[in-house]
Design a protein around this nucleic acid. Structure first.
Lengths: 336, 336
DNA sequence: ACTCGTCTTTGAATCGTTTCATTTGTTACG
DNA sequence: CGTAACAAATGAAACGATTCAAAGACGAGT
């Protein structure tokens, strides 16, 4: 029946003032045991549920945090989101997730939406350059934290992963296990990929007699990896690299398929292989794939922490936290 | 500066009444060109953003729809969510996604949250039995649509996929291509898996001389599939099935790894293989994997449509829409 | 009996929007 | 010139919660 009972209905039913009902809900200690029981009973009987819109209106702020990611289907982002949700829950807040799908109009749409919702703050993996919009948000009192993107600390905080270090770790591992002629597979036109390559080149530069060739792939997919892998198989054995570092796991899995398909190349004996991201499939590949793992839980958790810091400082103090990725060694790079 | 300008500030700045500003926003036709321009200019200058809490409070309902899924990381659900978001956007609504992670306390948490938000309606893939809670919601005017679960149409609407038909399609395809001794790999303790098996058995029953053996797997992962695959390889060739139907693609990929690893078995010549779900990896497997595709876009879109129907009928009319999955033929089941 | 302090309860004011009955302004027509 | 018809603008009331100054209740101490 009751479309929805209001606090006033509860007050009438329990024969108390509206303020008392509110106190039962928000400051139970201020209310005597007797009346508290009576009010709670009325709440149960009427099926009262707090109207969050009214509460927010009065409070001037919501208990909500907006998160805009490039792709919820991507395990990296869904993991970050999950961690952020948990961290926010501990603070009594809720995370609303928006998926921009790499589309800046969708991104703008969610930014507007979250502003109308008066979110406490915004976590965002920006599609393009959003520094202007972020300045506007800050002026309006909405702190923002960039996710997976390094921020200018004059403007806002950020959490990101050191891609160059990840590339360094991968290449160093290959070198440490005795390989000297390396190959890098990926699309360096993407910023993150370029950093990973740069790190790899740094590691190679530290070892005399080591070299790395760059094989540009057509995309970041399994199929693109397979194409590159086929080219490698066609080469005469002495021209093949001793180790291949792929800028993501999908590429690596594609390369692995090509190399193992014809049985002429053994992994890791003839060619070692390492990927990036440590997706679920990496461990269950034909040859379990070594990879670089990004600390997604820490990213999500820290993003929420930085947001809290921003709120406390009134949006004046910014911090850029950079995480170091982690090397995960599996069979595909086992000792030469 | 402006923490946030209200409609009253805009009215003062533009020298009009608050009602006029509201009309500019909601009924532009009621306002003369001249004042409209003046008001819009003030809105821009003050950086006014509508406060959604106040709007909702007045309206008594939000423009928000709640969606609770079992796992956002699962491509099935992220695809359904995406489709629902798009369909809702066309109606001017927004979808809030909650991830229960198969945990009924998290599920309950989101149900409470969405109720406080006064969502227009709820789409849910329930963890356990939620019929009681759904009854309560209906009484309170929150229509609910079950997703990926068949509903009792006396209580609420639902969108689901006919798993038995999916199993039938898969087995029939294997039979149509000449295979007679089939095997089913999966964990029939899961409801959906049991239905798929039942459908497969129905198809086998229609063909004389055909048989299907059930291989219970330890889970639904690639590794579980590999274990089953290894057992198959150990058998003498004449005892191996001619075709294997796995209750999901991960299992199928695991089986594929085992079978192709030792090169004693060829896919599809010696053993045909088909999975279920048609995940992205299916097409880029070593041997592209045939599979059963679930119409996730249609599920999401229809869920929103049914919700709209519920709203129009005041929550009295319920409908259960069951979709038929689709067979996707690839190389792994190519003609014998 | 009176005062003081503590604990509990009260209820009006407030948040920012939308709505709608009224008022004000303008044009057309007899 | 009067008035009917219509368009545009007004501003108070309402939505449902929280807050807070003030009032009320009660017991202890003198």
């Amino acid at each position: 029946m009751s479309q929805t009972a209001s606090i006033k209905d509860v007050a009438t039913h329990a024969q108390v003032a509206v303020g008392t009902v509110s106190n039962v809900l928000n400051y139970p200690d201020r209310v005597s045991q007797r009346t508290k029981e009576r009010v709670l009973k009325s709440i149960a009987e009427l099926g009262f549920v707090r109207n969050d819109a009214a509460r927010q209106l009065r409070a001037g702020q919501s208990r909500t945090i907006g998160l805009i990611v490039l792709d919820v289907g991507n395990p990296f982002f869904s993991s970050v989101a999950r961690a952020a949700e948990d961290a926010a829950a501990a603070l009594g807040s809720v995370v609303l997730v928006g998926d921009s799908g790499q589309d800046s109009s969708r991104e703008a749409h969610y930014m507007d939406l979250f502003q109308e919702q008066r979110v406490q703050g915004l976590l965002i993996s920006p599609v393009g350059d959003v520094s202007g919009r972020i300045d506007t948000l800050r002026e309006r009192g909405v702190p923002t934290v960039l996710v997976d993107e390094l921020a200018d600390t004059d403007r806002c905080s950020s959490v990101s992963v050191d891609d160059q270090e990840g590339g360094y770790l991968a290449a160093k591992h290959l070198l440490d296990t005795g390989r000297r002629r390396l190959a890098f597979v990926g699309t360096p036109s993407i910023r993150q990929v370029a950093s990973r390559l740069k790190g790899a080149q740094r590691a190679v530069g530290e070892v005399t007699g080591a070299s790395i060739e760059v094989l540009d792939s057509a995309g970041q997919t399994v199929l693109a990896g397979r194409q590159v892998g086929n080219k490698l198989v066609e080469r005469s054995p002495e021209k093949r690299p001793e180790a291949v570092f792929c800028s993501n796991d999908l590429l690596a899995l594609g390369v692995m398929q090509s190399l193992t398909m014809l049985r002429t190349v053994r992994i890791p004996e003839d060619i070692a292989l390492i990927g990036y991201d440590d997706i679920d499939f990496a461990i269950s590949a034909v040859v379990p794939l070594s990879s670089i793992r990004q600390p997604t839980e820490a990213l999500g958790r820290t993003a929420i922490e930085l947001l809290a810091e921003e709120q406390e400082s009134g949006g004046t103090k910014h911090r850029a936290v950079v995480f170091t990725p982690e090397l995960v060694v599996r069979q595909s790079t086992a000792g030469a």
